[in-house]
């Protein structure tokens, strides 16, 4: 199990290496959030919740501080809240989506200390002290990032539900590898599913963004 007293997931996610397509598999990515995967998989059976039968509906709470899209926040969270719940429900950053809530689809991907993580599988308390970036933090002063513009130009979104997650993982890729090949993009984005199956267009958009100067 993850040691809750250690802020951030960096010790596992620092192994992410986009330069070598073989270095990062989807399974590695999932195992990087191992503790949370186990917890939600056990709890999600037919929607039955995390708590065992008990009469109190209260959860223990903790005070955390984190930076989201450059803004510092100090807030008190239920220990059972995930990072994506805090982003969406407490900070009104609803751009980050919940597709599976169990580390399968990648719709909830955000950058945590620069690395893509599934925010459905990070407890909010683990984000104490972290620097988080969401899809709302990609455009600067109303100017789309080159990657966002490439998604507009290349029909990156169909329904758009997976788009924020695709954008965040691709942003991390472009920071490490400003001009990726199509194969490198496919490898990096393997943990972000798209059921519209707009995969060809997404890869074309990321490659085009690389040609135009990367994530910046």
């Amino acid at each position: 199990m993850r040691d809750k007293s250690k802020p951030g997931p960096s010790e596992t996610d620092s192994s992410v290496n986009y330069l070598d397509p073989k270095a990062q598999s989807r399974r590695d990515f999932l195992e990087g959030t191992g503790a949370a995967v186990v917890a939600t998989a056990a709890a999600s059976s037919l929607g039955v919740g995390v708590a065992s039968a008990q009469e109190s509906s209260r959860s223990a709470r903790s005070a955390i501080s984190l930076t989201v899209n450059g803004v510092d926040h100090s807030l008190e969270v239920d220990d059972r809240w995930t990072l994506v719940e805090v982003l969406r429900d407490q900070l009104d950053l609803t751009g980050t989506k919940i597709g599976c809530n169990r580390s399968e689809c990648g719709a909830c991907t955000v950058l945590m200390n620069g690395q893509p993580v599934y925010s459905c599988s990070q407890l909010a308390v683990w984000a104490d002290g972290a620097d988080v970036r969401t899809v709302e933090g990609l455009a600067l002063n109303g100017q789309l990032s080159p990657l966002q513009q490439a998604f507009v130009d290349n029909n990156g979104p169909q329904c758009g539900f997976c788009t924020p997650g695709q954008l965040m993982t691709a942003t991390a890729l472009l920071q490490d590898n400003p001009s990726p090949t199509a194969a490198e993009v496919q490898s990096a984005l393997v943990g972000n599913l798209c059921r519209c199956s707009n995969y060809n267009a997404i890869v074309e958009a990321v490659v085009a963004a690389g040609d135009q100067g990367g994530a910046a």
């Binding site: 609803t94 751009g95 709302e136 990609l138 789309l144 539900f161």
Partner: peptide, 14 residues
């Protein structure tokens, strides 16, 4: 398209 790439597009759960 801009709503879709900036997180502004409002889906039901939003």
């Amino acid at each position: 398209a801009i709503e879709r790439v900036t997180g502004q597009a409002k889906f039901t759960r939003d």
